[in-house]
Structures are given as structure tokens and as C-alpha cells.
């Protein structure tokens, strides 16, 4: 068999009309489309990243401490050490995401410079700005942001977020908040779809979001970006429930590497996410996983220990 080899060349930006354009909305939002139906896993070491990739994760979130440890240890939670992110980037071929603090645009600039594939402007870290989120349009790297309801999701999209996730209550192993956020976002979208044109103006005012975006969501019956779930997912059934509630994919934080058998649990959650509508598959993959992470009953959390209220 003969192989035709083509030499590589350099980019020619001068070609009128035909030049490559990076960082467009289509390229940023399209990246999230490729993650759909998949599971994104929190990892704190290159070894964990390999376990996640081998289990079938579509991406990993590189961070210094999983949310459960941030809760337990307290202190200010910041962007991870670039060396640590680099070691994870070199360990796996799947996309690598990393978190910056809400409003901390320099942490975001650093993450873009390192070459992460997605930045999570995350309430799990200690917020850096009490009024403003990062202007995400100013970046080539795409952003995912958390939301507890439709208005919050639309404000983040207006700021340039290319992907939305529920906030849930990270690090608790308790899905009740993620359930609330998924139901809230989906219910509010359904309600928008029933409104007349004149009612949509008031809806936009109430949602504190631009009218054009609200009208687009009402017409399409969905967000213009991918919607994942996050916060408290600890079992295959949790992941499948979120998918049945309308999530297009799942973030799992502490739920995997705080459990008894991370590799088995990670693979099981991947399978349950794909076959989220098939209880036989979910039953099968839920067997023999060992201990799940120990959960936290949210009634025992003081208000200042709740992350979902961070972000504006």
C-alpha cells in the first residue's frame, strides 16, 4: 500500500476571506457540543486524570482540591498551580478544563495562556469580585458557568459563556440542589415558550436578561448553548436522573475520587449517562461499586458554606 504524505506548512492569515478564525462563538459552543452525552470528572493529579480517561470521561477538570476537601479544609480556594495543570494536560489526550474564581479575569488569562480547553468560572472557588463576572467575550478559550435558574444562565451567556451547568451544591454528594436548578431552568424555558410577544418583554425584564436572547430561547425551547449538570452527583442513578431531567451531560466532582473504587464508579457513571433512559443498564452498572462518597445533608450547612448563592 502506498502512503501519500503531505508536508506541513504554516498558516497564511493574509488570504482574503479564506483565513482561519479562532475563538468564534461557533467554535466555542461547538466544543461543548462535542462533550454532550458525556461525563466530565474532577481530578487533582495526573494519575487520577489517567483513571478518568480510561473510564471513558469526555474531559477532566484539573483542580487542586475537590470540592469536598475545599469544604473540609476551608480557606481561600484559588486557581490551581500551572505546573499541576500542565502535568494533567500532558497525561491525557481528552480535553482539560480548569477553574478560575468568579470575576478573576487574570486567573482566566493565565489558564488560557497555559492552554486549557475550557475555563470554569466557578462558585466552588472563593469569589474574587462581588459584582462582576469575567467578560468572557474577550477570550479565545471558551467558558462554562454555573446557574441556579434561567435568568442567571442567560446573564452568563450574555457575558460570553459558551456552556452552562447547574450549580448544585458541590462537594456534598447530595443532588437536591442540582435537581432544583435543572428543574428550574427547564421549567422556566417551557414557560417562556408559552408567552406572547408582548409578554416576552416583561419576561426579559424579570429575568434581567437581554430581550433578543430571551426571545431566541422562547422560540427554540432551549438554551443557545449546551446545558450540563453539576453539584452533588455521586452515583450512576444520580447521573441518569439528571439526564432524564434534561441535562446534556454531567460533571462529577468529589463523587468519584472520594468513593471506595474510583475506576469502577467512573466507568459506571459513564455508562449510566449514555443509557440514562434504560433502567436495566443502570441497575447492572450500579452493582459492586463499593462505598459511595459520604454525603452531607444540606440542612446542616450554614448559609456561608453554601456555594450555589455565589455569583450574581
Amino acid at each position: 500500500m502506498s502512503i501519500q504524505n503531505v508536508p506541513s506548512g504554516s498558516e497564511q492569515p493574509g488570504r482574503a476571506g479564506a483565513a482561519a478564525v479562532k475563538g468564534t462563538s461557533r467554535v466555542k459552543r461547538g466544543m461543548a457540543d462535542m462533550l454532550k452525552g458525556g461525563v466530565i470528572m474532577d481530578v487533582v493529579t495526573a494519575e487520577q486524570a489517567k483513571i478518568a480517561e480510561d473510564a471513558g470521561a469526555v474531559a477532566v477538570m484539573a483542580l487542586e482540591r475537590v470540592p469536598a476537601d475545599i469544604r473540609a479544609q476551608g480557606g481561600v480556594a484559588r486557581m490551581s498551580d500551572p505546573d499541576m495543570i500542565d502535568s494533567i494536560i500532558s497525561a491525557v489526550s481528552i480535553p482539560v478544563m480548569a477553574k478560575c474564581r468568579i470575576g478573576h479575569f487574570v486567573e482566566a488569562q493565565v489558564l488560557q495562556a497555559i492552554g486549557v480547553d475550557y475555563v470554569d468560572e466557578s462558585e466552588v472557588l472563593t469569589p474574587a469580585d462581588e459584582a462582576y463576572h469575567v467578560d468572557k467575550w474577550a477570550f479565545t478559550v471558551p467558558f462554562v458557568c454555573g446557574a441556579t435558574n434561567l435568568g442567571e444562565a442567560l446573564r452568563r451567556i450574555t457575558e460570553g459563556a459558551a456552556m452552562i451547568r447547574s450549580k448544585g451544591e458541590a462537594g456534598t454528594g447530595n443532588v437536591i440542589e442540582a435537581t432544583r436548578h435543572m428543574r428550574s431552568i427547564r421549567t422556566e424555558i417551557r414557560r417562556l415558550s408559552t408567552l406572547s410577544a408582548d409578554e416576552l418583554y416583561t419576561a426579559a425584564k424579570d429575568l434581567q436578561a437581554p430581550y433578543e436572547l430571551v426571545a431566541d430561547v422562547a422560540a427554540a425551547g432551549k438554551l443557545p448553548v449546551v446545558l450540563f449538570t453539576a453539584g452533588g452527583i455521586a452515583t450512576p442513578a444520580d447521573a441518569a436522573m439528571m439526564m432524564q431531567l434534561g441535562a446534556e451531560g454531567v460533571f462529577v466532582g468529589s463523587g468519584i475520587f472520594k468513593s471506595g473504587d474510583p475506576a469502577a464508579r467512573a466507568a459506571a457513571i459513564v455508562k449510566a449517562t449514555t443509557f440514562h433512559d434504560d433502567p436495566d443498564v443502570i441497575a447492572k452498572v450500579s452493582r459492586g461499586l463499593g462505598e459511595p462518597m459520604v454525603g452531607i445533608n444540606l440542612d446542616t450547612l450554614a448559609p456561608e458554606q453554601r456555594y450555589a448563592g455565589r455569583g450574581w
Binding site: A19, A20, V21, K22, V27, G30, P95, Q112, G115, T140
Partner: peptide, 18 residues
Amino acid sequence: MAVRRNAFGRQVDSFERD
């Protein structure tokens, strides 16, 4: 054919063109 994965680079290198 032989195919190289992620050959065009990471997400910051993703692009559209004619």
C-alpha cells in the same frame, strides 16, 4: 488512511475557515 488525533492543536487553536 492514517489519522492523527487533535493534530490541529488544543481548543484555543480551534478555528473556522472557508
